[in-house]
Amino acid sequence: MIEIRGIHKYYSTEFNKLNVLKGIDLTINEGEFVSIMGSSGSGKSTLLNIAGILDEYDYGDYFLDGTLIKGMSQTKAALLRNEKIGFVFQSFNLLPFKTAKENVALPLYYQKMPREERQELAMKYLERVGLKEWADHYPNQMSGGQQQRVAIARALISKPKVILADEPTGALDSVTSEEVIDLFKQFNEEGVAFVIVTHEQEIANDTSRCIKVKDGLIEN
């Protein structure tokens, strides 16, 4: 599903060139439930961004579902992201001026799905995450846990192959964190792969495999 081969990534500043990823090899299979751990600055977020085609890499190869992701146009990257990947962020990243339902439906807008259909599907997914009654609320009317569940519904609505979650519980208390991970597990059982970047050992323990990143390299 995700095939990363010898990937290097540099960040150039005015004064020096920072080697963030120093040759990463990583394979994530379809339907896997994986966590990535590492201290801040280890390169784990960069790795996730590359996997999500949000960022580019300098050397190596990255195959997503068999497609080589290299020097790709923004348009093609956007279409692939929309089709194959769902994102869950630490700070939820919902659009504040849209209701929960509209937020969930957003990826389908970029698939040019008709509005009625979109809304219907969004309701279905909101129901799945237990927020059917909150469909017409705005993000600032909801708790952090609720917002994250809306974000999860949004990530899943385009039926992606993999969900990339960057510290999804970083802004949540332990109870709601557990709820979020439980939701992840539910959807994982339906075949969606999850890659969760975290620095909480408990969450890593819940996953079937933990990848440890240190100084731009994979340790295990």
Binding site: R81, N82, N93
Partner: peptide, 16 residues
């Protein structure tokens, strides 16, 4: 910027 970043992550193309 953030909104546009989110839209892009959700699959918005530059043209859109």
């Amino acid at each position: 910027t953030k909104e546009i970043g989110i839209r892009k992550a959700m699959g918005a193309t530059p043209v859109s």
